[in-house]
Write a protein that binds this DNA or RNA. Structure first.
Lengths: 212, 212
DNA sequence: AGAAAAACACCTCATTTGCGGCATTGTAGA
DNA sequence: TCTACAATGCCGCAAATGAGGTGTTTTTCT
């Protein structure tokens, strides 16, 4: 079994060197480069060809998320674990979408950092339960403020079909009713949702339902 | 500080009693009820008024997810932690949407179960890193198979406006171009995405982009 | 420099859609 | 029982949209 090459991108010298030492002290891991900026890392990452990158989310100059995006574009197999100071950092969501593989707090103790590295290598996504909670919340449609809840059962059904891109006719065929009836329902849906077109309605559906 | 009332819903007698014992052995926690089915739990949950429910995801009869939904509808403050056998259970996503607050494996050792309970009480969402990984993956748009990637920059811009429910005219005003030009772009977009209407196009956008 | 792609713009025509009515039937609640 | 609402269906009209062209200019790449 070979040693895992890890790169650190972090502008604070103390933190950077601290984590580097933790890595080198750990059997199986090796700090193969540490950079104070994303630009410097991007110049050297290809020649180092690391397995894991520990990336500060709030880098000076090019920020950690943009840096993450660029790395992932060129090297799909590299694993990127973001370093944050606070768990409620708004940027965690941007980095999730950009493809981050996990999250660590800068203040996390050495064993936790090593655990996290082991986890990403095993296909997991290490993150604190607080961050996990925030991720789950993003997932969930907020039923409290979901305007589509005032729609009748049939209206919701028709809205669902709309969201799949069907025309009046297609919806009518699917539900075994007249296209005119579909139009009638749509009129009511538009009124209740305060919209004036299919597209606007579909837009609202996805806004509240998030996914699916 | 009072003891935390916990309910267990699990059809396997051994597992149910095992977890009940773990809870009662732990200072601060108390197993205030354990049921082999969702129906039985739903009958009694109100009078017990627990703080946390440990719920088997694959219950006989009414399943754990439906059960979760009903509980959350009536008692918003109760925390529900799902019990699964496998980490790759497809139903974890359904239960996320239904409002689960965390996940435990039935085989998890006592300390892990207690940690998880502490975590949910502190506003976290305990789950294994494997499950977290799967959640993150759902979040991320799959750029590999994202048809919208073949669109030009301007076309993507117009598609984004479309997804907000704008008409041709509104998009034209927003981008300072003629409505006719917008129509032109849309024609190309439809061709590239193999769709024939705004609604279909918007449907595709959200399918690939998932959220935002 | 030349070719290709992207962005811009206009035209026509058939279809779809949004909106205004109107009417019937069934169901659930006051 | 009366009322409200949901679900069904139809008519007409104006506006928006989809699909087929054509053409110019700018940008990008070779």
């Amino acid at each position: 079994m070979e040693t895992i090459k890890v790169i650190i991108v972090e502008d604070d010298d103390l933190i950077r060197d601290g984590i580097a030492n933790i890595l080198d002290d750990q059997l199986g891991y090796q700090c193969s480069g540490s950079f104070p900026s994303g630009e410097l890392m991007l110049e050297n990452v290809k020649s180092i060809n690391p397995r894991i990158i520990l990336m500060d989310i709030g880098l000076p100059g090019i920020n950690g998320i943009e840096c993450l995006r660029q790395v992932k574009q060129n090297m799909q197999d590299v694993l990127v674990v973001m370093l944050t100071i606070f768990e409620d950092d708004e940027r965690v969501f941007d980095s999730i979408i950009a493809g981050a593989d996990g999250y660590l707090l800068k203040k996390d103790p050495a064993p936790k950092i090593i655990d996290a590295l082991n986890d990403v290598l095993n296909g997991g996504a290490p993150m604190s339960n607080q961050i996990a909670k925030r991720v789950l919340d993003k997932f969930r449609p907020n039923l409290e403020e979901d305007e589509t809840q005032i729609l009748s059962k049939r209206e919701k059904e028709i809205l669902d079909h709309l969201a799949k891109g069907f025309t009046h006719k297609q919806i009518a065929e699917n539900l075994f009713i007249s296209p005119e009836t579909v139009r009638g329902h749509l009129k009511n849906i538009y009124q209740k949702l305060h919209v004036h077109s299919k597209t606007e309605a579909v837009s609202k559906v996805f806004h509240y339902k998030k996914l699916r």
